[in-house]
């Protein structure tokens, strides 16, 4: 028994080292006092962590990514919550097809979505880069929004709305007074999942990003093509912390993992 415990901890230890180790390394690589990316770092300092905040393009792309993540997710929820509700509660003609269409952006590789949007929508209709990115991110998050909200609707019995109607609610009132308060956790979870997904998204934005208008991950990729200095490591570490903090807080406050 002792031996088996040891063996199982060895396996878990190795797996976790493989999965988590690189982040530990990147945190230290970003804290290098030297000018090149190396491990072990040449002395420790916070200068690269501080430098990240002074790089103009990082600041601009951070703002863009934040905006896309927040507003893209909100738009996806505005479209997705009613869709999830309708698909969950009513037998619709062709609901399987609607489900497939709404879920499709998750199945088709992002780079193809980005390219197709660029070539047949953005260029012909002369969208600005920001508008194009906004639409693309909304489409990308829509499947997550529908899925997460659906699963929390599944846990809510539909006779709740009937009870509300019999007490005098209209269908719309029943949704806002009874359904929405009870799927709030699911909607917030969908928001967080959508936010993280959008913020970390690369392939869809790859073709759509234009000169001077780039999402943060794309900006990091192009920065890396020029130099391997530790600032990208520092930025990566900061972003990792941000994502983990958001998800950790969500789990504590909402029981995030119940919905995802």
């Amino acid at each position: 028994m002792q031996f088996r415990n040891l063996g199982s901890w060895l396996i878990l230890g190795a797996t976790l080292t493989f999965l988590i180790g690189p982040f530990i390394i990147i945190i230290f690589a970003g804290a290098s006092a030297g000018n090149s990316l190396a491990f072990p770092p040449e002395g420790l300092s916070l200068k690269w962590y501080l430098k990240v905040f002074t790089v103009e393009s990082f600041r601009a792309s951070f703002v863009l990514s934040m905006g896309l993540a927040i507003f893209g997710t909100l738009a996806a929820l505005v479209l997705g919550v009613p869709a999830a509700y309708a698909l969950n509660r009513y037998k619709l003609p062709g609901d399987e097809m609607i489900r497939t269409i709404v879920a499709a952006p998750i199945i088709v590789p992002g780079i193809i979505v980005g390219l197709a949007l660029l070539r047949y929508l953005v260029v012909p209709l002369n969208f600005t880069v920001t508008v194009a990115l906004f639409f693309a991110h909304t489409a990308l998050i829509l499947p997550y929004a529908v899925r997460v909200v659906s699963s929390s609707l599944n846990n809510l019995r539909s006779d709740m709305e009937e009870a509300a109607v019999l007490l005098g609610c209209s269908r719309v009132q029943a949704f806002f007074k009874v359904v929405l308060p009870n799927i709030r956790g699911g909607v917030l979870s969908a928001f967080i999942l959508g936010f993280v997904t959008s913020f970390n998204q690369v392939p869809v934005s790859l073709f759509l990003s234009g000169p001077g208008v780039r999402t943060l991950p794309i900006d990091m990729l192009s920065y890396m093509e020029i130099t391997y200095d530790p600032s990208v490591a520092a930025l990566s570490a900061l972003l990792a912390f941000m994502s983990v903090a958001i998800v950790f807080a969500a789990e504590r406050l909402l029981g995030f993992s119940r919905y995802v």
């Binding site: 006779d159 009937e162 009870a163 019999l166 005098g168 209209s170």
Partner: peptide, 29 residues
């Protein structure tokens, strides 16, 4: 329509509103 008939229904599952306490459930209508 159901919301104008003046009929009460006690559901098999009770269908209470989970986000409201007993008082608010009763006061809802």
């Amino acid at each position: 329509s159901a919301n104008k008939r003046g009929i009460g229904l006690v559901f098999q599952s009770y269908a209470l509103f989970p986000h409201l306490n007993a008082f608010e459930n009763v006061a809802f209508g």
